[in-house]
Design a protein around this nucleic acid. Sequence first.
DNA 1: TGGCGATAGTTCACGAATGAACGATTGGTG
DNA 2: CACCAATCGTTCATTCGTGAACTATCGCCA
Lengths: 148, 148
Amino acid sequence: MRKRAPKRRRRSATASAVVSSLLETAEAVETRLEAAVSPLGLSLAKLGVLHPLAEAREPLPLSELAQRQHCVRSNITQLVDRLEKDGLVRRRPDPQDRRGVLAALTPAGEQAYTKGMRALVEAQQAIVRTLSAGDAASLKSALNALTS
Amino acid sequence: MRKRAPKRRRRSATASAVVSSLLETAEAVETRLEAAVSPLGLSLAKLGVLHPLAEAREPLPLSELAQRQHCVRSNITQLVDRLEKDGLVRRRPDPQDRRGVLAALTPAGEQAYTKGMRALVEAQQAIVRTLSAGDAASLKSALNALTS
DNA sequence: TGGCGATAGTTCACGAATGAACGATTGGTG
DNA sequence: CACCAATCGTTCATTCGTGAACTATCGCCA
C-alpha cells in the first residue's frame, strides 16, 4: 500500500512551492490591475496617492501620504513630482507649518481618480469572480493567518 | 431576522479587500525573504539568476536566463552586470553562436548560491509553519484557481 | 529666551523592472 | 549565393521603491 513512513519530507518540499505560488499569483494579479488603469495614464502607485487625497476631500501633507502608503518620504516626493507633471496634483505650502507641503487634488486629478477607481474595482471584481465562494473564503482566512 | 435582500452588495465590497489582502501579504512575505538573504549580500533577483545556473551545472545564454526568469532581456543584462561585479558570475562568449553570451557561475557564485538557497528555504518554511495544515491546503487550491 | 532635538521635504545614489532602439550575427528561402 | 527576417545582447530613458545626508523649521524646556 505504500505511503506510511515518508510523510515528514512533504512539508518542507511543499513550503517553497506554496510561497512561490503566492508570490507569482500576486505578481500576476498586480500586473492585471496595472494593465486596467494604465490606459488612463495611471499606475497603482499614482492611484495610491490620489486615493487618500480624494477621500479626505482636502489637501494633505506629504508625510501623511507616506504613512498611509506605508512607504518612505522620498518616494512620495517623486510620485508627487510626476503627478504634478501630469497635472493631477498641485503642491502648496502648509499655512500651519512652514516646513510642510500640502498635496492638493486638481479637478483633473479628481476626475482621473474616479475613472481610475472605477477601472480598478472592475478589474478586482473580475479577478475575484474566478474564485468559487469557498475558495474566496478560505483564501481570505489563509491570508489573514499569514499576516498575523 | 434580516439578511435577505442585500446580499448582492457583499461581493463587490469584499472584492477589493481580498485582492488588497493578497497583494499586501505577498509583499510582506517577499520583504521577509529578501531580509533572509540580504545578509549574504544577495537579493531574490540575484538568487533567481544563480538558480538555473547552479541547477544546469553549466553556463547558460543570457536569453535563456531571461526566459526562465519571465523577464525582459535588458533586465538580465543589468543583473548579470551586478553579479559579475560581485564576482559570482562571469560572462564568456558562446562558441556556438557569436551573438550569444554565456553566464558562468564562479566558485564564489556556487558557494553564494548554496548558502542563499539554505537561507531562503529556511525562511519559506518558517512562513508556512505559521499556517495550519488546512489553511495551507486551501491557500494552495485558491491560488491555483486564481492562476488558471 | 535661547538652544536643541525631533520632524518635513528634498536630493542623491542605488536596485529592480520595463520597453524602445540599435548593431551584430544567424538562418532560412528565393 | 545573397538577401532579409528573426534573434542576441546592450544601451538608454522611465517608473517605482529604498536609505542616507542635508536644510529648514518647529516645539519644548531649562
